[in-house]
Amino acid sequence: MTAQRNQARHDETSRMRGLMLVAGREIRVRGLSKSNVISLIVTVLIVGVLAALPSLFGGDDGDEKIGLAGPTAAAMQTQLDAMGGFDVTVFDSAGEAEQAVEDETVEAAVADGSLYSRDGVGNETEAKIDAAWQAASVQTNLASAGLSDQEIAGALTVQPLEWVTLESEGGVTGPLDYFTGLIISVIMFMMLMTPVQYIAMGVVEEKSSRIVEILLTSLKPWQLLGGKVIGLGVISLVNLIAMVAVGLGVSAATGMLSDLPPGTASAAVSTIGWWLIAFALFGTLAGGVGSLVSRQEESGSVLTPLIMSLTLSYLGAIFLLNAPTSTFAEVLSIVPPFSGIAMPTRMAIADVPAWQIGLSGVLLALAAAGALALGSQLYKRSVLYTGSRMKISEALRRSA
């Protein structure tokens, strides 16, 4: 019995060693190649520049123009002047203040307990205005209150600002939000498209050169496909982590991180998890369909459905940037394979209910498991086949 257990452990170790040998070879050949290193450096520089653009072109060009109206206007102007960075205009009525926002005479206006803006304000500006509102309200209430403790306590009770956004509901809060979501969707698209194509082309290359026949004398088909997917996955994961780290680092260094939509940093980090699941789905399918052909010229035909799926996922993510709370955006961010790009993009620009995030993750993981089963079967049954392109149905009917 002990001998059997030892033999089982030895077989398991041997299988994992073969898998890791293939993965290591992919990392050395592709990951450490000059082209990949140069590509990583260029891509990271581009991400850094993109992350710095809002501070270079979308940052403060002077004092922010704020309109005030109502009984707290005078006290609030004093508070904002003390803070600095604001160009305050006092209006006679709330209607005039709101109209000034509509006409873009001021960027935002506080009147009768409401903060009016066309497309939202940055988190830092919001905090300053809210603090000024609280202090001005207290000052105004105390000025009109008596000296009894009960009256003072009542005067200190201040209602929070009611936010009124004049743009249509369901839209993105501002250009910075759109820009952030766009960067995430572009990175996800690039980091899925490139390794998926490499996996398929690598499979076809090994078939056309007959190297796969030699490799299969000492390795199992699942070790070859799994090692290739893991190796290229590690390379792409390192690239993705570098991009996310540089993007967040540059945003923090330029002071733009606090102005990003709430949860953007956590959404960017969670992008890595969404990418891993999506890559498992598309990567294994790419290896499976790549084994259906024997020449590089034919690889495009079998990859077309995957490329189209990725492209539609990306275009859908771009669409939901304009309406992240619409029904279409919700469905797109839940249904796989589109959710692989759509959900992290939506999470970066809007508050997504936890149940939708959980459901999306579970469905995408189930789809990845199904893709893993299908891709591995296609590879195992057709990797040694040579000749014209094989149909998927034909490959599945072949004996393993």
Rank of each mutant, 00 (worst) to 15 (best):
G283N: 12
G283C: 13
G283M: 13
L285Q: 09
L285S: 08
L285M: 14
A286E: 06
G288T: 04
V289A: 03
V289C: 10
V289T: 06
G290M: 10
S291L: 09
S291M: 10
L292W: 03
V293Q: 03
V293Y: 07
S294K: 00
S294N: 11
S294L: 10
R295I: 10
Q296A: 12
Q296H: 00
E297H: 04
E297P: 06
E297F: 00
E297S: 11
E297K: 05
S299M: 13
S299T: 15
G300Q: 02
S301V: 12
S301H: 01
V302F: 01
T304V: 10
T304K: 06
L306I: 15
L306A: 08
I307V: 15
I307C: 02
M308G: 12
S309C: 13
L310Y: 08
T311R: 01
T311C: 08
L312I: 15
L312V: 15
L312D: 08
S313K: 11
S313R: 10
S313P: 09
S313A: 15
Y314V: 12
L315W: 09
G316N: 06
G316P: 09
G316T: 14
A317C: 10
A317S: 14
I318S: 13
I318M: 14
I318E: 07
F319M: 13
F319Y: 13
F319I: 14
L321W: 03
N322E: 04
N322K: 00
N322C: 03
A323K: 04
A323H: 02
A323M: 06
A323G: 11
A323Q: 10
A323E: 08
T325D: 14
T325W: 02
S326P: 03
S326W: 04
T327N: 05
T327S: 12
T327C: 02
T327M: 12
F328V: 15
F328W: 14
A329N: 08
A329E: 01
A329H: 07
V331P: 03
L332T: 08
S333D: 01
S333G: 07
S333I: 05
I334Q: 08
V335C: 05
P336N: 03
P336F: 06
P337M: 05
P337E: 02
F338H: 12
S339G: 00
S339K: 02
I341Q: 07
I341P: 11
I341M: 13
I341K: 07
M343S: 02
P344M: 10
T345H: 02
T345A: 13
T345M: 12
R346V: 10
R346L: 01
